[in-house]
Amino acid sequence: MKHIAIVTVLVALLTIVTNYFLLSVGLLPVEASTQATIIDKLFNTHFFIISFLFSLISVFMIYSLIVFRNKKGQDEDGKFVTGSTKLEILWTIIPLATVISFSYLGAKSLAETRIINPQAMTINVTASQWAWSFEYPDFEITSNTLYLPVDNQVNLQMTSLDVIHSFWVPEFRVKQDVLPGENLVKELRFTPSIIGDYTLMCAELCGGAHAYMNSPVKVVSEADFQSWVDLESKADDLNPVQKGEKLVKNNGCIGCHTLDGSASVGPTWLGLSGSEKSLMDGEKIIVDDKYLMSSILNPNQDIVQNFSPNIMPSIYADLFSKEELEDIIAFINSLH
């Protein structure tokens, strides 16, 4: 009995110490959405149970290994105890009750994170290898930065053009895979709660430059959001080069094609037009508007040496109008 009493005290102490350690070390990023607050509450319950079970098992183990161990010069058998049905039932029933209540808490927490605000602003999110694009249907704006007004729920309608991606901003906690397929549009709702700059990261391995499939997320005040909307809406009086620049930035082109001459998955656009390139079959060509156009529409046809086919999607004939394609080429031509 003496041993049990000592161990009980030690378990209690270690539980408190471990739990204090876990809570004070800063295990999770900033809570920047209402959902994060709800989820972290459940995390903290988990941390407590982890502290308790860790202490329970390790204290009992280490105590018996030290106190009851076979001392030097002894060669004794341990106490003959084969089991105890009472104890076994006890440590089946109590964990059972714990996991059921945990599942209940988990379900409640999930439900709270998913409370729907019918006034939520809809944003259509399109993922592709390896870029994000955000369309605000209410304002007819497309952007490569996710601008969000603080304290307003957003309703993301997400789809992918190629493989599975996953939407994750660690500070918002919630995560949702983004699937290809028209009938597989996935919804994600959250309410950002702190103004600031965050990074959206693709969390599902999507090949190649998966590591770099990030987009800036800006949570701004409602006034700042409105002025951003006003600024973006005045896009009509842009010249073709500016329009092209906007298009390539918002549709993920620069995820693979750099503008500064550095190497990436696709050829850099700096100084591209007018340059001489060798194709896979050895043929030499001069990059002109015609070649650029055919490379955008049929990316696998004339691959330049040292680049791989089947990386760039063949979707741009449907995605862009003829004028838009010409704007893009005008922009590429402007890069020298």
């Binding site: 989820i39 459940l42 995390f43 945990f102 994170t113």
Partner: peptide
Amino acid sequence: GPPAGTVSTDLH
């Protein structure tokens, strides 16, 4: 395991 087993914490 359990934090990864409850849905809302697993979302993170």
